[in-house]
Amino acid sequence: MATARDWLAGTRPRTLPAAVVPVLIGSGVAAGYGKFSPWRAALALVVALALQVGVNFANDYSDGVRGSDSAERRVGPVRLVGSRLAEPRQVKLAAFGCFCLACCAGVVLAAVTSWWLVLGGSLAVLAAWFYTGGSRPYGYRGLGEVAVFVFFGVAAVAGTAFVQMGNLSWLGLAASVPAGLLSCALLMINNLRDIRSDSESGKRTLAVRIGDARSRVAYLAFVLVPFALGAAIAFERPFALLMLLALPLTLAPVRAVRGGASGPALIATLGQTGRLQLAFGLAFTVGLAIHG
């Protein structure tokens, strides 16, 4: 039987910056226009975190019942279903519970801004489930990074800014790109770590499709390009350059990836990538909030 600690591990805490950072950046955009709303930002954070934890539980369930994430193959943290710590039905209900929470918070935001958010939220929930769920999961066809960029980059940042400002802004869209790329970096390092086990189980992630060497190049691009884009945005928001404070945090993960670290050796790199993403997000948020 799974313990509370097992369930906490099942949320995959190292991936949670992918949910937090876009909301921070979107709120920074809104603050820069003088339209920051604490309670709307808080609800947007609930939506993002609930979706992230929900997709983690959904992946645990779907991979577990398929047998593609068994304890024998698993390289990363223990999975609840694959390791038989929890019944598949329990993990599936946990995923749906998270999706329900995200929908409830999203409906409140839609009621005070635009009902079009319901459509966007519905697409996000469907994307979360069908990443590894259903008969033809798109995550098994190398499209995971595309979905992450769209939903934990563009939609999350621009959407967070929108619910506070009441309109879309070019800055919200521009700032969403670095956030999306860093979320892709988090997924890429995860899939690079699992490239061997995923290949053996027939899970054709982008890392499996393009191979080890190109996956490492892609990861480096996902990590470093956001700094170049942040510098470009600084022409409009000069204090956006504060995100350069996070640059030293690229050294350890970049060194590990360029040095050929693989398998369990990349578990630490996943955590380092999450910390980099969070540090970048915090500094970038402050910079975007200062209009000067």
Score class of each variant (00 low, 15 high):
Pro17Leu: 12
Val150Pro: 13
Ser37Arg: 12
Asp69Pro: 02
Ile267Cys: 03
Leu109Tyr: 08
Ala102Thr: 14
Met188Pro: 08
Gly76Lys: 00
Ala128Lys: 11
Phe99Pro: 01
Ser62His: 09
Ala4Asn: 13
Ala58Gly: 09
Asn190Gly: 13
Phe280Arg: 02
Val125Leu: 05
Arg12Lys: 14
Gln277Arg: 04
Arg73Glu: 01
Gly134Glu: 06
Gly172Ala: 10
Ala246Tyr: 00
Ala256Phe: 05
Tyr138Arg: 08
Leu119Lys: 08
Ala155Gln: 12
Asn167Leu: 13
Ala207Ser: 14
Leu16Thr: 09
Thr11Met: 06
Asp60Glu: 11
Ser27Phe: 11
Ala179Leu: 01
Val286Tyr: 07
Gly54Cys: 12
Leu224Asp: 02
Leu278Ile: 04
Leu288Glu: 07
Ala185Phe: 00
Ala179Trp: 01
Phe36Lys: 05
Pro178Arg: 00
Pro13Tyr: 04
Leu192Lys: 01
Asn167Ser: 13
Val55Ala: 14
Ala41Lys: 09
Arg141Val: 12
Trp170His: 08
Leu181Gly: 00
Lys35Leu: 15
Asp194Pro: 03
Ala105Pro: 04
Ala58Met: 14
Arg136Ser: 14
Val217Tyr: 07
Cys104Val: 15
Arg84Gly: 10
Ala185Tyr: 01
Leu43Phe: 15
Val254His: 05
Tyr131Trp: 08
Trp129His: 06
Ser83Val: 07
Ser114Ala: 14
Ala31Phe: 11
Leu288Pro: 15
Trp39Thr: 15
Ala256Cys: 11
Gly133Tyr: 03
Ala110Arg: 06
Arg237Thr: 10
Ser68Gly: 11
Val23Trp: 06
Ala44Arg: 02
Val208Ala: 07
Thr132Trp: 02
Leu43Trp: 13
Ile195Ala: 09
Arg209Met: 12
Thr273Lys: 02
Arg79His: 07
Ala156Leu: 09
Ala175Tyr: 06
Gly34Leu: 09
Val23His: 08
Asp63Lys: 00
Leu173Gln: 05
Arg255Lys: 15
Val208Lys: 03
Val20Lys: 08
Ala231Thr: 15
Ala95Asn: 12
Ala218Asp: 00
Gly166Tyr: 03
